[in-house]
Structures are given as C-alpha cells and as structure tokens.
Simulated assay, not measured.
Amino acid sequence: MTAPEGLLLQWRDHLATNLRRSPHTVRAYMAAAKRLVNASGAQDWNALAALGARDLRGHLASRRSEGLSNASAACELSALKALLAFARTQTGSPDAPPPRLRGPRLKKGLPRPVTPDDAENLADGVAAMAREGWIGARDRAVLYLLYGAGLRIAEALSLTGADVPLGEVLVVTGKGRKQRQVPILPQVREAVAEYIAASPWPLDKAEPLFRGAKGGPLNPGMVQKAMARARKALGLPDTATPHALRHSFATHLLGEGADLRSLQELLGHASLGSTQIYTKVDANTLLETYRSAHPREAKD
C-alpha cells in the first residue's frame, strides 16, 4: 500500500465510522480527496495540512476547466476543506486557521412540487408496474412516507421492524442524528401495513423494514428507478423525483395554512431559512394557477 492510499483509507474510515456519513457522501468526499492527493503529490498528513487557499484555488480552477459546474465546485470545495481540517488534527494542529476560500455563488432554484393527484398516481403507478406484488407494495409504502409524512428517502429506508406497527406519530432520526416527531396519516399506515403483509421476509425489530429483492436493505436507487418508470408512463416531468414528494408535502401544507415554524419541525430543518423557500414555491404555484385559469391571461 502506498502512502497516499493509506491517507485515503484513513479518511474514509473517519467519514464512515466517526462521522457516520452516508455511503453517497463517503464516495463523493473520497473522490474529491483522491483528486487533490494525486494533484498535489502529498505523501503524508503534514503535506496536506500545509496546503493553503492558493493551492485549493488552483486545484479547483483546473477542475472547472474540465467543465465542473458551480454547484459541483461548491460541493468539492466543502469536501476538501473537511479533508484539510482532518489533516490538521492528524498533525497536532487542529486550531490552525483553515484556508480562506469562498465557493462559487449559487443561484438557489425552487423545488418543483407535484400535485396531490400526481403524487397518488405515482404511488399507484410504481405498485402497478413492479415485477412482483410485494415489491410494488413496498415502493408504494415508501412513496407514501415521503409525500404523506415528508420524510427524506434515507429516513424512510432507515426504519426498522421496531418502528412498526406505525401509530399516529413516528419518531424520525434525521440529519445530524436529530430526532423529530412526525404525524402519520391513516393512508400512510395502511400502505405500510399492506407492504408488511405482502413481504416474503420476516419482520425483525433489528432489521430494515424495507427490504431489497434478495432480502438486504433496500437501495434508494431502486425506488428512484421505479418512480422514473412511473412518471414516464404518466407523462410527468423529470423533476417528479422521490425528493419532489417531500417538497410537495411541504408546499401543500403551507398552502393549507401551516406556519413556517411548524413546517420546520415537521421537515427536520436545522434553520428556518431552509424552510422559507417554500413560501416562494407556494407563491409560484399560485401564480401559475392564476395564469392558467384567469380569462384575461388565457386570452393573452
């Protein structure tokens, strides 16, 4: 094993074990770290800890010349800053000032919600198009948790047998291991119960609730693929993703009069600023409805 390989393995173990980052985040951070290590020629933590803003700026400029977008550049910079912070802890200088480098300015786009009818049609569509009945019931239950309870897909797939049968309130562990209480509608409870009844796998309190075809933990990619097939069949845009169902949950609640603080708690947002984007979404939806329905606008 070469010295750079040892650095990368240590970084991966820190991300996965100490920080408990998701597999997706670990892969992304590892890829960014490998590119920087290879480009800089660093052989140990001291060499990495010595890298400064000029080094990162030059590295990112090279990446941008390869066609890296603003959003991807911002993500890569965040990953590299985390790597260099870890390098400083490994060299005994955790309090050393980090490289002062700002990421590219990002234009924040609005989430694209689906209508309540489309959300229900998508859930029914994935069930109807699945190759086995229990798989269809599984995917339908997952989508109901996203739209009916506002869960992130990772939160839904982290549920175990200990979480069922679902009651009127579910305790969800979200980002940063922060827990929140989420009301569960009867339709959501029914969808999950139907999946449990149809599943060929035993319900174990210590095992994932949602299983893959071979009995292992369900990969979120399988749900995304099932929804992609359903939205194509329904003629819905590519923006109709599993995460869009969570956006729809928030937008529709706001449209029915929910206040931002309550919505923040339901979504598990760390800051109110993350929730405030839905006020823009709701206004945007109302404007589109007005333009399509108003006689004068329709005439124009």
Rank of each mutant, 00 (worst) to 15 (best):
S248Y: 05
A141N: 09
G235K: 01
Y144A: 10
G133W: 00
T279K: 01
P111E: 10
H14N: 09
G125I: 03
V182P: 00
G41I: 08
R231F: 03
A123C: 07
Y29N: 09
T115P: 01
R261G: 01
R27C: 02
R100W: 05
I277F: 02
N46A: 11
E194Y: 00
A119M: 05
Q90A: 10
M129D: 14
A82S: 15
A128D: 12
A119Y: 04
P186F: 06
M222T: 15
P98I: 06
M1Q: 08
S72E: 08
R211M: 12
G92Y: 13
D124C: 08
N121R: 15
T91Y: 07
T89P: 00
D95N: 02
L254Y: 00
V192G: 04
V114I: 06
A258Y: 00
K81R: 15
A71Y: 07
T160Y: 00
G161C: 07
P208M: 05
G161M: 06
E190I: 02
T2E: 12
G148T: 10
R105P: 02
S199T: 14
T285C: 04
D44P: 11
D55A: 13
R35Q: 15
R189V: 03
E297K: 00
Q90W: 12
A49D: 11
R152D: 02
R27I: 02
I184Q: 01
L185E: 07
K175P: 05
G255C: 14
N219A: 15
D163H: 08
R88W: 02
P104F: 09
A250I: 08
N46S: 11
A71L: 12
G41N: 11
R296E: 03
A191D: 09
L218T: 11
S199P: 00
S72L: 09
G6T: 13
G215P: 02
R189G: 14
V126Q: 05
L267I: 04
A156M: 07
K225F: 14
K34E: 15
E288Q: 11
E76H: 06
A137N: 10
G52R: 13
R63M: 05
P113Q: 07
A32L: 05
R27A: 14
Q179Y: 01
G216M: 14
G221R: 11
A137Q: 14
L48K: 14
G255Y: 13
R180D: 04
R246I: 04
A47I: 04
A16V: 01
A119V: 08
P4R: 04
G174V: 02
R140K: 15
H24Q: 05
A82Y: 01
D300F: 00
A31N: 06
A206L: 03
A270I: 01
K214N: 15
K108H: 10
P242H: 12
R211D: 05
R246Q: 03
A213V: 15
L101T: 11
K34Q: 15
Y195G: 12
L267H: 07
G6L: 10
S22V: 03
V223T: 13
N18E: 11
P99K: 05
R140N: 13
E66M: 09
A250L: 04
G136V: 01
G148H: 10
